[in-house]
Design a protein around this nucleic acid. Sequence first.
DNA 1: CTGTTAGCGCATTCAC
DNA 2: GTGAATGCGCTAACAG
Lengths: 357, 357
Amino acid sequence: MRPTVHDIAAAAGVSLATVDRVLNQRAGVRKVTRERVEQAIERIGYVRDVAAANLAKSRVYPFVFILPSGDNSFMRGLEAQVRAAMRRSSMERAVISIVTVPAFNAEALVAALDEVRVTAPAGVAVVAVESPDVIAAVNRLRANRIPVVTLVSDLAGSNRDHFAGVDNIAAGRTAASLMGRFLGGRTGPVAVLAGSMLVRDHRERLDGFRAVMEETFPGHALLPVMEGQDDPVLAERLVGETLAGTPEIAGIYSLGAGNRGLIAALKRRANGHSICVIAHELTRHTRAALNDGLIEAVLNQDAGHEVRSAIRVLKAKADGVAVIGAQERIRIDIFLKDNLPFEDGGENQEPGQGEDV
Amino acid sequence: MRPTVHDIAAAAGVSLATVDRVLNQRAGVRKVTRERVEQAIERIGYVRDVAAANLAKSRVYPFVFILPSGDNSFMRGLEAQVRAAMRRSSMERAVISIVTVPAFNAEALVAALDEVRVTAPAGVAVVAVESPDVIAAVNRLRANRIPVVTLVSDLAGSNRDHFAGVDNIAAGRTAASLMGRFLGGRTGPVAVLAGSMLVRDHRERLDGFRAVMEETFPGHALLPVMEGQDDPVLAERLVGETLAGTPEIAGIYSLGAGNRGLIAALKRRANGHSICVIAHELTRHTRAALNDGLIEAVLNQDAGHEVRSAIRVLKAKADGVAVIGAQERIRIDIFLKDNLPFEDGGENQEPGQGEDV
DNA sequence: CTGTTAGCGCATTCAC
DNA sequence: GTGAATGCGCTAACAG
């Protein structure tokens, strides 16, 4: 049987209350007593039963997720995953709420962060937009001892506790590596479709992609980056123009969420040589394009994993315990037509279909 | 506040004990009473606090992991992950023990399964070897109502509750897809190095690989499969002979754990054209070879994820609750030189280094 | 068949 | 400063 507080009380010759005081580092214990208790704890190898502790405290964790609004498929999938977590959250004593703000809008995000702060939640997960004001707002949360994890897109220079997302530089490098090899002997320039250079994940992907293309595949020039604001209509127009202006194009790297527009533009281009397209995020649009051979590879981040990880980390930070590092490392999934997860396996769906939640 | 057993007792006008009886589907309750209680539960939307229940039961879960012995890097990494889980397991009320048996040995595995069975554990995770005797032994466990999950390699035709591993047919298909594209214009046959056709995962990988190579890249003939028994010395000899006998070889797919031997053979082959090598499992050997450019891609299954997933599923089965499907789906990781996880990030190491466990 | 009672391991009043 | 007592939500004896 695992040792309990009673055992350590007996071993140290003190009462439960005193043990509790030293365990929770509260004041009101003489130094000698404290040391005696600490030795006992060490000696009998006590580890606190967190479940029992939470029960006694009837602790709940009010967490807030701040997500961009808009009809970006990936972000809506992310929100669906948060909602799925909400449904399970009663089990984990977490009470999750969602706040949405316009995408790529630092001002709105700052307002949301400050509003959330006054409700004193046990933790905040936020899809960051990079700006000094946002950094300041996040730091205000931290100053109030509220744990913060950035989700999907990180916020360098802030005091956020953790980033629940992929290594986007590596993602860009990987995309370039695949692009270069898939292109094989083919020649011609490569185009890049981004959402906005205001978010760190897009910038990092571009940096990584550009680095490997220049180092390893200098034969393929990079066309000027198209910024589609993750808007299907704008993206379709930009891609269409580029295809018209540079018909000898060999490949396209879509590093943002403008895939619906990209796919539309590719489909309108009835004939011509094959173009190697690599995109991000497995949604129903990219999945279909992968199956049709319109897209060769999709790099994906598992939104469900990111959300569950964010919750685990927030909870761990909230009660000051460690996390399993490897479990919180979000992988870059590479999907080809051949390793697509069965059916709509959980990455961008309202859960409950196909999974035994 | 969430409704508790007291609330439902009050609502139904019965005592706690009765509520408990219907909650745990125990006998000794009149049908009318039971129905009244069930209605109350439904009406006030009660959900059981599992943590409190486990506390009251002081429930522990004795789980057994049955793993192959030998110096196979992947399997030793798997064992390290199980040991890491053991260290954390006190938190989760799980008591894990490990049993090792000689690899690819059905007889030894059957003996181990039967021995484990009489200790009546709360669940068993096993790296399966395919044989009717093993199937029977697993079914004996299930007949004793002991949950069983297969780990890494599945056991078709058995009553195992769950498979914690990757879709190996998809893995083989993916390997072929990458191989074909990486080969680009190059010609020449492709060799396959396996461990043993006795384990399902190896067979499935081969099937998937062969299927896509024949469908999509018929220009590359497949050489007869080399069975290296996951033994470095044998693998090195087999690969060496093949390289000598068929110097025009274009690619090698290593679908088992004979990578150390493979790499040694490749290194001895001082000069000659480049060969596209795709292997399985990220170990320190394959990681180094990837960095050296000796291997182009590594398909990996995250042993840590598999172990944690197996434990979660066993626990869920043990107390008859559902699992989060998406969380238990083990992904096929594709690693290129460019997206290698930082340092020794958790996939094949004694944990505690580089992760904040 | 049903109800009372005493814990599970811990946190938190309130006295001393 | 320290200790005794009570309760968190649930289960499991034991009575009735």
